[in-house]
Amino acid sequence: MKSSNTFLRYVSRGLVYLLAILMALWVLLPIYLIGVAAFSEQLAVYKYPRPFFPSPFSTETMVFFLKSTGVAASVRSSVVVALITLSLSTLIGAPAGYAIARFVFRGRETFRLLVVSTRAFPIVILSIPLAVSFIEWGMYDSVYSLALMHTALALPFTILITSSVFASVPRDLEEAAMTLGCSQLQAFVRVSLPLALPGLAAATLFTFVLSWNEVFAAVILTVRNRTLPALVLTVLDVSPLPYRFAGGFFMLAPSLIFMLFIRKYLFNLWGKVTK
């Protein structure tokens, strides 16, 4: 009786692992397949039946994509936009996040609610009116203007995430520093900042990915200075398969690395934000 129970427990545990692995495959398999397509020779992409391994392994398709017209420039634009977005949203948003986490003041809840409620709006759609305004202001088709739009997109996230990161540093620690001779600013620099740094880094990485991936605003707000997703999207229906596959893989690759770093902070980033 007892042994059959143990046996059943092993079986059910095994089934749980099987399910976990199936779910992992559901995520990984498509990535693997696009990887195969991106790292085969160009001709292999047209081969049928489609090989499931890169045979032979080749960077030819990838090189072809990266050397295509406009790709190098658009990658540069993408990185520039993402870096500006990351810096701006952190510079503007982190102080607000800190204020919400640390100070009790009139209007705090109102502000927090306003920021939370921006998520009930399709922010990306705002790029249409912004495009019109940017044209009027002579700021259209510029990576800087797009970075401003992306910052608007990222800012509510940054504020909520940094406030949850700062809130996870106990207030006592800052107060202890102040009783030991620190000013408010010194206490922040010497205590809160070092403790919040890993979380803040994860938040900024997330902002980078957000901007790197964004396509609607990018395609509306730029014409000649396309970011990578905007470029790929606009040439999608006239581009050969190898170009699309290599482009697809190139665009998703950063996520594989970023998630490795952000992983530990995912729930910091999202857990308290849901409140």
């Binding site: 106990p170 006592d172 620690l173 107060e175 202890a176 520093a177 102040m178 009783t179 030991l180 001779g181 620190c182 000013s183 408010q184 205590v191 070092p194 403790l195």
Partner: peptide, 20 residues
């Protein structure tokens, strides 16, 4: 005066020992 100018020291309930 702010804390730092009061020449006090304090022990907190949570200890508030700096983890870093």
């Amino acid at each position: 005066l702010p804390s730092r100018k009061r020449r006090i020291a304090m022990v907190f309930q949570s200890y508030a020992v700096f983890p870093h």
